[in-house]
Amino acid sequence: MIDLPFIYDAFVQLCSGIPLTLQLMAVSVASGAVLAIALAAMRLSSWPPLDLLARIYIFIFRGTPLLVQLYLIYYGLSQFPELRKTFLWPFLREAYWCAALALALNTAAYSAEIIRGGVLSVPTGQIEAARAYGMSGFTLIRRIIAPQALRQMLPGYSNEVILMVKSTALASTITMMEVTGLAAKLISATYRPVEIFIAAGAIYLLLNFIVSRLFKQFEYRLSAAQRQPLYRRAAGENA
């Protein structure tokens, strides 16, 4: 019933979409992270208008489907002819940059809350102690807050990155030929949806498996303080 050689063929063809999927993911995760840090800082700011602004942003981007955001940018902006004269137009007329922008704006909203949670998990006593030592501003963030917040937020953030890998599939709706785009094209060319689904699904599972492994590895490296010392593990003691 299931045609293995065909699945293999489809798998090989779909693999040519992986670079685009990964590129979209990397560009949007990286630029989304920068925006997310700014948003998290706004959420934590003691000046209410900044907090409110970030709240509104997060509410809007988490409360609407990514597809609407994508279409608003890709199709919607063409309603404003004035935009065509600005320096932004060479980017906004490309499906690639529209997809990257929508994904980045979307992930920033989710990541900002993850970052905020990480920062809030740093014990107040430590921050007070650092202040008592005369540390302030950037030094305090670099030495005390950032390392611990990073460790805390990593599991949540890895979920977000996996979501982003899956979300890149939406770029296929605006003509991008990444893995899902290629799969849809293959399905309509061959009418063999099940086999192609298996091939494409395997690619996404593989990508997500690699992403989650990398994050686990990173988490392990960052949590040296929580691990048992080697000599105790060697002696077979329990923590």
């Binding site: 899956k166 599939a169 939406l170 899902t180 849809a184 099940v194 689904f197 494409a200």
Partner: peptide
Amino acid sequence: RGIPDLLVIYLFYFGSSA
């Protein structure tokens, strides 16, 4: 949880149409 929802929708639609 590891596969894009869009792919699952394609599978169900084109699969049952086939």
